[in-house]
């Protein structure tokens, strides 16, 4: 069973979204990248469960890909 919750698990989505947008106001892309990274590190530490973080990384990785690419990645991970 997956450790990562993927069903809706929050309220106040618009507030959170706005907060995430505001996080980057007035920043260059480079500064913005750094701020994203900080946020991820803070959240990862809060989650405190490496499996959840790794599953989240996999989900982010796969969600940006076409089905064929996903399969290639998964095959590659299995043979690695």
């Amino acid at each position: 069973m997956s450790a990562l919750k993927t069903a809706t698990n929050l309220t106040g989505h618009d507030d959170i979204y706005e907060g995430l947008v505001r996080l980057h106001e007035g920043l260059s892309v480079e500064q913005s990248l750094r701020r994203w990274a900080k946020l991820v590190l803070i959240l990862a530490n809060h989650i405190g469960d490496r499996t959840v973080v790794e599953e989240a990384i996999d989900m982010a990785l796969l969600s940006a890909m076409l089905p064929d690419e996903c399969r290639t990645i998964l095959d590659w991970q299995q043979t690695d």
Partner: peptide
């Protein structure tokens, strides 16, 4: 991105 992560 990895530079940003490192610096973060």
């Amino acid at each position: 991105a990895s530079q940003a992560l490192r610096d973060a």
